[in-house]
């Protein structure tokens, strides 16, 4: 069985979520084919696969279906990202394969596959049996380990397509989201809520995030008030994340907020209100004033940084 993996870039680096997918592929398949639009040869060659197919734009993968069709009897593995949802749908139609999303566990059976998917806003794990020779798996971020051992000798192929994309769109304006670290791919997320009282007080949140190499996020009321951009809003109607560590500062922990963050591996809640419901869904808690605690954490981290340097 061949395994085709889509590898995404983030500032020309490989996304951690894509490395998870490469690791799964190497575990379950003898022949791993990576498709990516990362052009830097050194970075591409660091990916552990038998074949590396470099295309111009991953968004237009359907234009390369003839080349991909050469790998018969294939399954597809990619992270469950916005762009991959579209890619998976195109591949599903081309190869007549089913798609399953939010995958947190995957097993190859003698006939077909068994996988587990996170559903009902991370409140339920669904066990899914797939009776199909192939399938497209969308992997939930931070659900599998990354293995870097036994690097294979790979064949690198650059592909060009002369065909035009089916749909034309006119981009009138493009605003970059000013997140230094991608929220969906971050290992640590520092999130704050209305407890911070005003947008000016985010300076300490950004400083803390900077010291930890973390992404910043916020609750819905904060983005509704315009204190932070909507692109930082995590929760049921915002972005859903599953980092290693989630700091919730001055966030009460309404069920709608939890729906977007409850698959974080470790949750640390800092809140002045000891009755805040978030404490019932956290691993660590500090009851106290964020305006005293955050500067204290920053001071401690800076001290360590100085000692190290």
């Amino acid at each position: 069985m061949n395994c085709i993996v889509i590898v995404e870039k983030n500032d020309n680096k490989i996304e951690n979520s894509s490395l998870e997918c490469v690791s799964i592929a190497n575990k379950i398949s003898e022949n791993v084919i990576v498709v990516t639009d990362i052009q830097d040869e050194k970075i591409v060659k660091s990916i552990n696969a038998d074949t590396l197919l470099v295309i111009d734009d991953i968004d237009k993968i359907s234009l390369y279906n003839e080349e991909i069709k050469k790998y018969e009897d294939s399954i597809f593995i990619m992270s469950d990202s916005l762009i991959n949802k579209k890619i998976a749908s195109q591949l599903s139609e081309i190869f007549k394969l089913p798609v399953v999303s939010n995958i947190i566990n995957l097993k190859v059976l003698n006939s077909g596959f068994f996988c587990e998917s996170s559903s009902y806003n991370n409140n339920v794990i669904s066990g899914i049996n797939i009776q199909s020779g192939g399938c497209i798996f969308l992997i939930k971020n931070n659900s599998f380990e990354i293995h870097t051992s036994n690097h294979k000798e790979s064949e690198l192929i650059y592909l060009k397509s002369k065909r035009k994309h089916l749909f034309q769109i006119k981009i009138l304006e493009k605003k970059d989201v000013n997140n230094k670290i991608s929220l969906s791919d971050a290992k640590i997320v520092i999130s704050a809520g209305r407890g911070l009282k005003s947008s000016e007080n985010w300076e300490m949140i950004e400083k803390l995030a900077d010291l930890l190499g973390a992404a910043t996020a916020c609750s819905k009321p904060v983005s509704d008030l315009g204190w932070r951009p909507h692109s930082e809003h995590v929760g049921q109607t915002g972005i859903k994340i599953s980092p290693e560590i989630y700091f919730a500062i001055g966030i009460s922990g309404a069920i709608q907020h939890l729906a977007g963050v409850n698959s974080s591996k470790k949750i640390i809640v800092i809140n002045i209100d000891s009755d805040a419901p978030f404490f019932n869904n956290a691993d660590y808690g500090i009851i106290g004033d964020a305006f005293e605690i955050i500067p204290e954490i920053i001071q401690y981290l800076e001290k360590i940084k100085n000692v190290k340097s």
Binding site: P98, V124, S126, N129, S263, G285, I286, I287, I293, E296
Partner: peptide, 26 residues
Amino acid sequence: MKVKYENFTLPPKRSEIKYFAKDNIS
């Protein structure tokens, strides 16, 4: 259907919360 939802389970519960005081944040 090629895709069959066979079973549904609840995710593992978080362990009991561990509190830290302001003085032992380190």
